[in-house]
């Protein structure tokens, strides 16, 4: 695969991907970790988007933090990086779609991205634009891993027999 790349890029790319992998792992672990302590609040955060019936939102709110933490751990370990990155990208696209949907309907909510608060606090206004920019940034990390999934210090690398 590397034959088309210059030797320099072949050396650098796995390091770039490694940084992307660890960065995305941190994003998921923090996002999930901040929500997992109060699953009811996480459910309310999902419910605040007014997309799902409340009972469905509760289940999504309960499952989501665990999925995020699991994805974070998988990326941290570097197991099936391309698939993990693909699932990450799919989740991020869903989140971005949700934020755009809330924005377009004029809802006054916190995105609940890194917190379990669906409701906005004292006089706060929504920050949908920044939330989307941030999620797109994370999407770029996932994109890097989708294109160049080979990283240093990964379980994939060990199993594949790559030189570490």
């Amino acid at each position: 695969m590397e034959t088309g790349l210059s030797a320099r890029r072949a050396v650098m790319l796995p390091w770039v991907s490694t940084v992307a992998r660890l960065g995305l792992a941190a994003v998921w672990l923090i996002a999930g970790g901040l929500k997992v302590g109060d699953l009811a609040a996480s459910g309310r955060a999902v419910s605040a988007y007014q997309i799902f019936p409340y009972d469905v939102a509760k289940v999504i709110g309960a499952v989501q933090p665990f999925l995020e933490i699991a994805l974070g751990l998988l990326l941290l370990a570097g197991l099936a990086v391309r698939l993990s990155a693909g699932i990450s990208a799919a989740l991020l696209l869903i989140f971005i779609a949700g934020i755009i949907s809330a924005w377009s309907r004029g809802l006054q909510i916190d995105c609940g991205c890194f917190s379990s608060g669906g409701e906005l606090g004292a006089g706060a206004s929504p920050t949908y634009g920044w939330d989307i920019v941030r999620d797109v940034g994370f999407l770029v990390l996932a994109g890097i891993l989708l294109w160049w999934p080979r990283t240093r210090y990964s379980v994939d690398g060990i199993l594949m027999g790559d030189v570490q």
């Binding site: 699953l39 459910g43 509760k58 289940v59 709110g61 309960a62 499952v63 989501q64 933090p65 665990f66 999925l67 933490i69 699991a70 994805l71 751990l73 998988l74 197991l79 099936a80 698939l83 993990s84 699932i87 379980v155 994939d156 199993l159 594949m160 027999g161």
Partner: peptide, 28 residues
């Protein structure tokens, strides 16, 4: 070998995510 590794690591990833989801559901 790469094909085998890709298949089994993918299976592992899906299994981990499904289990994580079920754990969340169970706790809730």
């Amino acid at each position: 070998r790469r094909r085998q590794v890709t298949i089994w690591t993918s299976v592992a990833v899906v299994a981990v995510l499904v289990i994580a989801g079920l754990v969340g559901w169970g706790i809730a």
